[in-house]
């Protein structure tokens, strides 16, 4: 019943046209661009649910998370963000709002699905987030621990630094750059 193939195209190691280990194939300007992009990301958190409570701890006073704050900037209006963090269930009612938020964001935009609900929809047997959006990083757990969350964010930074573009959207057989 999953529809990856149709909505997102076949999974391959080179989604964005650049393979995972191809940092040397970038020229200086491209490397500079991806480095600067990776150094300051501004995430936007979606959802009011149990996972989001854990996510808000990332901006809290816990000394464990202080390393995150250097590279992730909290910013309020969604138009100035480039990382979308989805958490919680996805159903027919909320999905248009998620798509709306995604479309209002800065491009290139990256998506992280946090928690089992958003990643696979397994807890309440709802939809998975990649049925509506291309997801770059999945973070598992119900809810994920602080460490797992930070690993997920670091993984995204790593990907950006290596010049991997966000996964494109496939809608009706047409590819759209994110």
């Amino acid at each position: 019943m999953k529809t990856h193939e149709n909505r997102l195209g076949p999974r391959s190691p080179s989604w964005g046209g650049v393979s995972f280990y191809s940092i040397n194939s970038l020229n200086f300007l491209e490397r500079m661009k991806s480095w600067s992009r990776a150094e300051l990301l501004s995430p936007f958190v979606l959802g009011a649910n149990c996972c989001a409570r854990e996510l808000y701890r990332l901006s809290g006073p816990n000394p464990q998370v202080s390393s995150i704050r250097e590279n992730f900037l909290e910013s309020e209006p969604i138009e100035s963000c480039d990382v979308l963090i989805i958490s919680g269930i996805i159903n027919k009612q909320i999905s248009p709002y998620i798509l709306e938020a995604y479309e209002r964001m800065l491009s290139p935009r990256y998506v992280i699905a946090v928690g089992t609900c958003a990643a696979t929809g397994a807890v309440f047997e709802t939809m998975a987030s990649d049925e509506i959006l291309p997801v770059d990083v999945y973070v598992g757990g119900c809810p994920p621990t602080l460490d797992t969350l930070m690993n997920g964010l670091d993984l995204l930074r790593e990907r950006i630094r290596k010049g991997i573009k966000p996964r494109p959207q496939f809608i009706d057989g047409v590819t759209y750059e994110s």
């Binding site: 019943m1 149709n6 159903n91 027919k92 999905s95 248009p96 709002y97 709802t126």
Partner: peptide
Amino acid sequence: RVDLSLFKNEDKAPGI
């Protein structure tokens, strides 16, 4: 009735 059924591939997501 609120409908939970996952939308199929051919359906578009309902609008806002």
